[in-house]
Computed example of a mutant assay.
Amino acid sequence: MSKIAAKLLCTAIACTFVTEAAATEWNVSVWGKRRAFTEHIHKLADLVSEKTGGEFTMNISYGGLSKNRENLDGISIGAFEMAQFCAGYHADKNRAITVLELPFLGVANLDEEVAVSHAIYAHPAVADEMAQWNAKMLMTSPMPQYNLVGTGEPRDELAEFDGMRVRATGGLGKAFSAVGGVPTSVTSSEAYQAMESGVVDTVAFAQHAHLSFGTINQAAWWTANLNPGTVNCPVVVNIDAYESLSDAEREALDSSVPEAIDYYLSNYGALLQRWDEVLAEKNVTKVMISDEELAKFKDVAGKPIHDAWIAEMSAQGLPAQELYDLVFKTLEDTRAN
């Protein structure tokens, strides 16, 4: 009997080892804290686990695996399997997708932001560039148009942007620079301290980030309709890890992206509906920029920056005009449908 019991025990242990070996566990690197900007990643993890009966799980780490500016590097060496990053943090590493950060593209809502982002992500030039970092685009993290919160007197005329110290990255930084602003690209996690210490006068963020990183608590005013553009923050996966998935696991991951994005949009929409209440609670003045001043901003920071981007990226061998045209073709198709 003791021999039979021993054999059964060994079999049970062996089965346990097989089960553990068969399970897939991914580490996911993000930053800050859980917020509207990361809800689609949590939803994706839930869906994948559900579809695979718990055999494919994701551990989402907020800053424990990497700094936000180093997430793409971490993906490239396989330090973790999935990560989120923003194009403006290292524009030289992800040149093709910076077309999505050009100011005044005219993207009107989050649905359009999803459409243009995923169209650009699917372009071969983007896939080739990301492959250099062993990264595959999975989904976007759509954000509404950025707007400023600021200290001191409200700035509602373009002339008042001259000398304004602003936290803004990528194309937004170039836009403010074009009208005399002084952009700095401190990370989102550093923005509150930069504002509190007076390193910057203003911070350009989407609404969720003003809440999550506390800049709204330093603000005296907020521009409701400046809408100069937004940043683009994809979620990527390590190519080797993706290709190592079983067919069922890969299907579970890929098929969960649309539902994760839908959940994100619903959750973010609820936040936007509460925004006016937030401003009132924190005694932040809503500033409306006149149509005349907005037109001046677009004239200086719109097409001239677009043309410069096309010329610069074309000189580097990218199909810049093709990528640029794809943005507007996608917007046209999305609105038609």
Rank of each mutant, 00 (worst) to 15 (best):
M1P: 11
L9I: 14
E20I: 09
A22P: 06
T24G: 04
V30K: 03
W31I: 00
W31G: 00
E39P: 00
I41M: 12
I41C: 00
L44H: 05
L44S: 04
L47R: 08
L47G: 10
V48H: 00
V48A: 09
V48W: 02
E50A: 15
T52L: 11
G53L: 02
G63R: 01
G64L: 13
R69D: 12
R69L: 13
A83M: 05
Q84F: 06
C86N: 10
A87M: 04
G88K: 06
Y89M: 11
A91T: 02
D92Y: 14
K93W: 12
E101F: 01
E101Y: 01
V107P: 02
E113T: 10
A115I: 04
A115Y: 08
H118M: 15
A119M: 07
V126T: 11
A127Y: 05
A127R: 08
D128F: 08
W133G: 00
M139L: 14
G152K: 07
E153S: 07
E157G: 07
E160Q: 15
V166R: 03
V166G: 03
A168Q: 01
G170Q: 02
A175N: 06
V182N: 11
P183W: 05
A191G: 02
E196F: 09
E196D: 12
E196S: 13
G198Q: 07
L211V: 08
Q218T: 10
A220D: 15
W221I: 02
V231Y: 03
C233M: 00
P234T: 04
V237M: 15
A241Q: 08
E243P: 03
S244N: 15
S244Q: 13
E249D: 05
E251V: 06
A252D: 07
D254Y: 09
S255N: 12
E259Y: 05
A260C: 06
L271Q: 00
D276P: 03
V278G: 06
K282G: 01
M288Q: 10
A295F: 14
P304N: 06
W309P: 00
I310V: 14
I310S: 04
S314H: 11
S314L: 05
L318V: 00
L318T: 01
P319C: 13
E322P: 07
A336Q: 12
